[in-house]
Design a protein around this nucleic acid. Structure first.
Lengths: 107, 107
DNA sequence: ACTTACGGTAAGTTAGCACTTACGGTAAGT
DNA sequence: ACTTACCGTAAGTGCTAACTTACCGTAAGT
């Protein structure tokens, strides 16, 4: 899931979609304001994002609306939280042992 | 920064480092328990992670200890939070307008 | 000074990925 | 039925990023 978030274009796609659902063509037009990206390319990125569970699609007539799945973002956030807390606690343990080693009876 | 997190090997490196600081050789040995990764490859990944600000290094004798920067993880988390909140609010707005459209005078 | 340990880096190779073009398929409008 | 709009996908290409091998520098121990 983090791997799917690695590509800058896909990050831009999610950024656009986070403002609200968009069809594929609209997305391509929206992204072309900054980068130059073809519609098929957008389609392929959406496929990756969908398989990663970051995006949900819904067919409406000939159009196909894509929206971000808030639940997926919550999962990524939780995952990073684990990282963060573990590294933070190990960091604090290190600092604590440092001070006790250097100042055994400080207070 | 998210782009640097995209590579699976770098994710594994951060996972190992989140348990505590490690030297390059130790990291390579630790990762070889699951994947097969050479020491130079680890070095190159650490360079990317360092340039992305996700990792901090410290020279101790001939060894070089790497640790994750908790502050960087906090930044990534905040970035995702923005995404999450925006997509969530747009989602809620959509739900709200749907219900008001379908049940204009409900409740 | 010699050796050993440790790790960064240059050079070269390869696999994969992002992209374009071209095509086909479906839904709605006339 | 024909046309138009919209989109997914197959096929092919180019580039880049991840990897290995080889080499060099530095720090500490003898």
């Amino acid at each position: 899931m983090l791997t799917a978030l690695g590509d800058p274009t896909r990050q831009a796609i999610l950024e656009s979609l986070s403002d609200g659902p968009l069809a594929v063509g609209e997305l391509a037009a929206d992204l072309s304001s900054s980068r130059t990206i073809s519609r098929p390319a957008v389609s392929q990125h959406l496929k990756v994002l969908k398989e990663a569970g970051l995006v949900i699609d819904e067919q409406i007539g000939t159009r196909r609306l894509y929206r971000v799945d808030p639940e997926a973002l919550r999962l990524v956030r939780e995952h990073l939280d684990h990282f963060w807390e573990r590294s933070l606690s190990s960091f604090q343990r290190r600092v604590a042992s440092d001070t006790t080693e250097k100042r055994p009876r400080d207070e």
